[in-house]
Amino acid sequence: MESVSTSSVMDIFNLLKVCCSQSCNYIMTYGGTFSSLASEVGKLKDKSSDVKRGVEAATRDGMTPRSEVLGWLSSVQDMEGEAESIERKYNQKIKYLCSFPLNICSAYRLRNRAEAALATIRELKQSVEFTKLADNLNLTRSIKMPTTKTIGMDKVFEELLRHAKDDSLSVIGIHGMGGVGKTALLRRFNNDFPSETEADVVIFLELSIDYKLEEVQKSLFDRLSLTWQDEVTHRDRATKLFRVLSTLKFILLFDNLWEPLNYQVVGIPLPAPPSKCKIIFTTRTEDTCSHMGTEKMIKMECLEEEAAWNLFRNSSRMDVIDADKNVRIEARDLVKECGGLPAALIVLAQAMAPKKTWEEWMHALTIMKDTPHQLPGHSLVWRS
């Protein structure tokens, strides 16, 4: 009986010895876990600092940090606080005596806590690769533009749409003489195309003949909801525009270019195919297209006779044309004098709408042939 008892006691003692040995080893090697935690926290702080700088820069550019990024930064902050708490308790409460902690239970719980924090920190380090730090959620994707009728332009419009959807083309130039309808075509594109594209923003800018760099930059700043500062240099504005536009799938529409636009000076990143970004512009000369790095040129021609007649008829209601054969003949001759220019046809239709007699139409035809500049609205014909 005594032998059995002694044996049982020894078994229990050996079991306790093994358990205590394992627990002691677990507790005593806590220093290595704490060192790893401190190292990983330091690396996480470095990554967090990089992300914070990116977020701050995006915020200065008027952009809104993405929720996933803010959530990650919040989690990092929480884990930094947790690591500091663990370090503080380690230094204050777990004191060693002969390489063994006085409070074994506290040391055991603290190591478990440290290992959990270490695992979370490593997960945060692995999930730091964000595709985008911020979005401009307040950015208006497109703004509809008032436009005139584009009767007879369906063929060239379809050509423009086809090229705009081609990812191998980034810069498209539309050229043709004044009054041929370039502005109307580009405005129609601005109004109709955005619903079919993946673009983040479609920007339409109509440039004056003697436009200045500051005017172009100011228009882009306004459209992108960026803060304009008068004291900032052109170069700094260009840098800011470049940084913002580089994060977007943009379509820039420049109407009425009289001379080449320097993308770099303005701050516009030149799209490199394949790309969803596009730069589309109108100009009177083919030479401007060449200097703008155009990959596809579209030449706009005057309307053919029947298309010109339809545009004239549809631009203003004139029942007198249907009611009076003689007036209809004069109207046909007037349309021919316009040479198929859409702008001239529209202005002429609006000017002739109130004319009810054959004599008035005959008089208008005489003026059109001899002194066309005297017709109402003639100066508007040559704007496009």
Rank of each mutant, 00 (worst) to 15 (best):
P376C: 10
V9K: 15
S275C: 00
A344V: 09
L205R: 07
C105F: 15
K249R: 11
K155S: 13
L102C: 06
T29M: 06
F242R: 11
G152N: 02
S5H: 11
M1S: 10
G179M: 01
P260Y: 00
I251R: 03
R111L: 09
I12R: 09
P271I: 12
T120F: 10
V266H: 00
C277H: 00
V4A: 09
E301K: 13
T131Y: 02
N190P: 03
R188M: 03
A238T: 07
D236P: 06
E305P: 06
L213N: 14
S3R: 14
L97G: 09
A343N: 13
I27W: 02
D370W: 06
F242L: 12
F312E: 04
V244Y: 05
M28D: 04
V128W: 04
A164M: 08
C105P: 06
W72F: 02
Y26M: 07
I279L: 11
K296V: 15
S379G: 08
S168I: 05
A119I: 10
R383E: 12
T131L: 13
L169G: 04
L345V: 14
C19I: 06
D192E: 14
A117C: 14
V335N: 11
S36V: 06
D192N: 13
S246A: 06
S219N: 15
S48W: 03
L348E: 11
G42I: 10
P260D: 00
G178V: 12
R109D: 15
S275A: 03
I279G: 01
G173I: 01
Q22T: 09
E259R: 14
Q126I: 03
F34M: 03
E359D: 14
I367Y: 10
H175Q: 11
N256I: 03
S219W: 01
S315D: 01
M177L: 09
V335F: 05
A57V: 14
K355Q: 15
L253T: 01
V76M: 02
T294G: 01
K212T: 15
K325T: 04
Y30N: 08
